[in-house]
C-alpha cells in the first residue's frame, strides 16, 4: 500500500474512494492450483498492478499487501478441499498476515482453504445436487462496506461463473446468525434479475451465501470466479468491478 497502512476496520469506518491506491499482490501457487494465471493476468494486465507468485513451500510473502489464494484443486482435493493446503509453509505466513489485519482473498479452492485455516467461518460441503457445477450464475452483493465490494451495486445481479464440486456453504446456526448480524455476507446467489430465493441457490448453500468476509473485514472468500469474468475478450466483465473495488482506495 503506497499511501500508508490502516487497519481494515478503520477503513470500513471512514471510507472514501480514491483511485490513487496501488498494492503489491501475491498469488499463492499450490500443487494443483489452476486459476493462478487467470488471477495474475487480471491483476497485472487488466488492473496494471505489481504481482508476484508465491510458491507454497516458501515462507516469504515478499512484502505483498494483498494475498490471493486462487482456485484449483490444491493437493488433489485429497482428504477435503483445502485441508492439506492449509498446512503449507506459505499458509503459516498468510495466517499471520491476516491476523495482523493484512488483506487476503480466496476464490473457490482459495475460499475452501481459508475456511479450513479458520480465517473464515464455516465450511464448504459437497454440492447438494451431487454434481460438479461449471456454469454462469448470478450473485448479488450484500454490502458495500468492504474493500472487495465497495464499488459494487447492491441492486445488481452480477453474472460470474462457478466451477466447483464442494461449494455448499455451511455453518452452525449461531455462527450463521453472527455472520448475518455482523454484515459479513459479501454475496448471495440470485436470479438474473436479482431475486434471492432458494431456487437460485446453485449448490444448496445456507442462506444462498456465495461469499463472506471475516469479523476483521480483511479476509474475503467467494466460490464464484470473478477472474474469469474480467476481460471483454472473454465476453463477460461483471467480475472486473470486484478487482476495481480492491484498488478503489480505502484511505480516510
Amino acid at each position: 500500500m503506497k499511501k500508508g497502512r490502516k487497519s481494515a476496520k478503520q477503513n470500513h469506518e471512514t471510507l472514501k474512494i480514491s483511485y490513487l491506491w496501488a498494492m503489491k499482490f501475491g498469488v499463492v501457487i499450490f500443487p494443483g492450483s489452476n486459476c493462478d494465471q487467470d488471477v495474475i493476468d487480471v491483476l497485472s494486465k487488466t488492473m496494471n498492478q505489481e504481482v508476484v507468485k508465491l510458491w507454497h513451500k516458501d515462507h516469504d510473502l515478499q512484502g505483498c499487501d494483498f494475498i490471493m489464494l486462487p482456485g484449483g484443486f490444491s493437493y488433489g482435493d485429497y482428504l477435503r478441499s483445502g485441508a492439506i493446503a492449509r498446512f503449507s509453509p506459505i499458509m503459516q505466513e498468510v495466517i499471520q498476515h491476516a491476523n495482523r489485519g493484512g488483506y487476503v482473498m480466496g476464490i473457490c479452492n482459495g475460499f475452501q482453504i481459508l475456511t479450513e485455516a479458520g480465517l473464515l467461518p464455516g465450511a464448504l460441503l459437497r454440492n447438494q445436487e451431487q454434481k460438479f457445477l461449471c456454469k454462469n450464475v448470478y450473485v448479488k452483493p450484500q454490502t458495500t462496506s468492504l474493500l472487495a465490494t465497495q464499488l459494487l451495486d447492491t441492486n445488481k445481479a452480477y453474472k460470474i461463473p462457478v466451477a466447483h464440486g464442494e461449494g455448499r456453504f455451511y455453518t452452525d446456526a449461531d455462527t450463521l446468525k453472527k455472520i448475518q448480524d455482523n454484515d459479513q455476507v459479501m454475496f448471495r446467489y440470485c436470479s438474473h434479475d436479482g431475486i434471492i430465493a432458494p431456487e437460485f441457490d446453485c449448490n444448496g448453500s445456507l442462506d444462498n451465501i456465495a461469499g463472506i468476509t471475516n469479523e476483521g473485514r480483511n479476509v474475503f472468500g467467494m466460490m464464484p470466479h470473478p477472474e474469469r469474468a474480467a476481460d471483454a475478450d472473454l465476453g463477460n466483465t461483471d467480475g472486473k468491478a470486484i478487482f476495481e473495488s480492491l484498488l478503489a482506495g480505502v484511505l480516510a
Binding site: L79, A83, I84, F87, T115, E116, A123, Y170, T171, D172
Partner: peptide, 8 residues
Amino acid sequence: KLLANLIM
C-alpha cells in the same frame, strides 16, 4: 486439526 473438519 487435520483428518476431520469438526464443522462438518
